[in-house]
Amino acid sequence: MMLPNAVPVSWYLILSAILFSMGVAGFLIRRNIITVFMCIELMLNAVNLSFVAFSYELKKIDGQLFTFFVMVVAAAEAAVGLAIILTVFRHRMSLEIDDVSSLKN
């Protein structure tokens, strides 16, 4: 197999798109709240990769700073989200999203 001589930045962007789509797919097909939450983290990571790739392409580090902020927000989100999950589990004894549907009809 012939390997190309260099990796263009666009490949990184495509990898980012693939990972993002996986996150969306997992978000759609999974039923466990924690796994759904992890799929959101996967999407955030995919977006981070494209920020860093653009930062390389433009030779400016602003993109890396956006990633930094995304990470901090993700940390805050994880803390609050997991606390909510704990509360939900304490009330319903279940982690399935389908069980948390008292507001439906």
């Binding site: 990796v7 263009p8 930045v9 990184y12 390389y56 392409e57």
Partner: peptide, 19 residues
């Protein structure tokens, strides 16, 4: 991505050291 950004710079380790 491939159509609009055909000539993105190629990634070399150590080419961009501002990080």
């Amino acid at each position: 991505i491939l159509k609009e950004l055909p000539n993105t710079s190629s990634v070399q380790f150590g080419a961009f050291t501002q990080g």
